[in-house]
Design a protein around this nucleic acid. Structure first.
Lengths: 333, 333
DNA sequence: CTGAAAGCGCTTACAG
DNA sequence: CTGAAAGCGCTTACAG
């Protein structure tokens, strides 16, 4: 492969000049630039990213650290990040943290050595100190689904509280009077916000009782178990708002096993809008997050910070959408 | 961050010696090595991967190019690759090719510039010339689901033909006599092999007819449509072997819409063993590929080639397993 | 606008 | 076993 020296020689200029036309930072005489461009074309020259990285600290790589790509929420996020990154000529490194802070730290340590340009964390357990550490080194980061109070950097999430209210109101409109909520782990801000939204929207109902709120673990099995407990306590239960789609799937399974018909006897609404929701029988009504867009936005903001050198700490909250399907609407799509 | 020079100075040796103890290639006096290690420890020294890359051509990064992480088959593969890579201290770059040869070429071009150590392609459209190009530069690659005849490099796949036979035999055992096959795109070797397996196992049946084979596109919608066509032609249809799980899901949906009961009237078997299969109603019998293990194995072989410098061209075919569920077995799990 | 030169932080023959 | 030195291929002040 040709190097910058080959180009310089062929164009009859110094390597510095070649570097300048490649990076179009400083002004170069248009005519010399033309020569250089011609030489580049002729030699099929491609700058060596590693040498560039060593000299200039940027490798054209961003890292996406998420809990687990096997969780059906994350592929769309990853795809959103990768599509934008690829379009801008950047490469994406993927890391699964399993929501273990130590694994995140180890990724950060390993990737800093590789001069990764920036980090996107969709992981819930990054430590404050790690975020601070990166900030001090002026390495851009974008956080997904984190609190406001956290370190000053860009944070993206969707409007979870509003979404929960949408869900509950929809169930009410469909005629539910005793609406339960299976909530996710309360150390996740998303789960907390959805629980708050539920309380705001359902707290005033006549059939309301605190025992309608029951914990789950954001997975199918816990949704199933939660429903078993709910049915034991509430014979008049007619609506379930699950804190995410996986628990909603578990809920559907438990109801089906007991011969309880959905939506006729009990209506079920999930949260997230993952693909699974279209596969259940009946198909699952859900509050859809713009997951793919969130990934794309995270990448765009990160790249913007990388290129501009400016670090900002804005919070962006995206809107969610009610997607009504047959698990709440008789004959609905 | 401390550099190798700082360590050398503190240990009272040359940078060459420090480099030697870090890479433990050449022999170093145990005593000097001790000093160096102490200095490294004391300075919390971490070698700079980019400098190492520039000097030695290896960045400790491998690339995984797959069609689309949104396809539920691939997250498990990616996780398998990443887990092994992370354990060995390597980083994984993810690329979505959408099975477009040009995108693959563009990833290869971009990643070679970054001194990526090796490539895993789970993509079906890599061009022969790209594989050859990498081979010539002695960059290791591992291919998933490709033909035998292709370029000399490691190829991993599962025993698709055998799996198809397992599926058909299982349906026969469950009492099916008129078994259809929805086959995937025939430019995929996996789809071809499954079709062949079906023909071998079902060709001898009394109810057999070529019109029982019907094309699909490996997605839900095409599975649904295929079933509509099948029902129009074959009133006595009692078994369906879908070429993958997504088409099987579509088949289940179409049958459900028509009020045809599964498994009582028609039994359905998929292929792949993705998570979706446990979510359908009834749960889907399938031929499970060891997807996670395939990813791990691909990474292990690739890393082995990277470290040893040896390029091999073995074909590894992994066994698949029948996972019987309620879509074929009344009262089955 | 342009060039010579130092520097990024390693690895690796080459001597000794 | 160990060190001095060249080299990997760029970028970027510093002069001019």
């Amino acid at each position: 492969m040709a190097t910058i020296r080959d180009v310089a020689r062929l164009a009859g200029v110094s390597v510095a000049t070649v570097s300048r036309v490649i990076n179009k930072m400083e002004s170069v005489n248009p005519e010399t630039a033309g020569q250089v461009l011609k030489a580049i074309e002729q030699l099929q020259y491609e700058p060596n990213a590693v040498a560039r990285g060593l000299a200039g600290k940027r490798m054209g790589i961003i890292a996406l650290i998420l809990p687990d790509i096997l969780n059906p929420f994350f592929p769309a996020l990853a795809r959103g990040v990768e599509d934008v990154a690829h379009k801008k000529g950047l490469t994406v490194i993927l890391g699964n943290s399993d929501d273990v802070g130590l694994k995140e730290s180890s990724y950060i340590k390993a990737l800093k050595k590789k001069y990764v340009d920036g980090f996107i964390f969709a992981s819930n357990t990054i430590r404050e100190e790690d975020v601070e550490g990166l900030r001090k080194e002026r390495i851009p980061i974008v956080l997904l689904d984190r609190g406001l109070d956290t370190a000053s950097c860009a944070v993206i999430r969707s409007n979870n509280r509003q979404g929960a209210k949408l869900a509950v109101r929809h169930l009410i409109e469909q005629g539910c009077r005793s609406i339960a909520h299976i909530y996710g782990p309360q150390d996740f801000i998303t789960a907390r916000e959805r629980l708050l939204g539920y309380e705001e929207a359902a707290g005033g109902l006549k059939g309301y009782s605190p025992s309608l709120m029951i914990p789950g673990n954001f997975d199918i099995e816990s949704g199933r178990k939660a429903v078993e407990q709910l049915l034991a306590r509430h014979s008049n239960l007619d609506g379930i708002f699950a804190g995410n789609d996986l628990m909603a799937v578990g809920a559907l399974k438990a109801l089906h096993e007991r011969g309880i018909r959905v939506p006729e006897q009990v209506k079920v609404c999930g949260f997230d809008g993952i693909g699974l929701a279209e596969i259940t029988e009946p198909e699952l009504t859900t509050i859809a997050q713009p997951v793919y867009e969130m990934g794309g936005l995270a990448a765009r903001i990160l790249i913007e910070e990388i290129e501009s050198g400016i670090r900002d700490n804005h919070l962006i909250e995206l809107d969610v959408t009610l997607v009504p399907r047959k698990s709440t609407v008789k004959g609905g799509s």
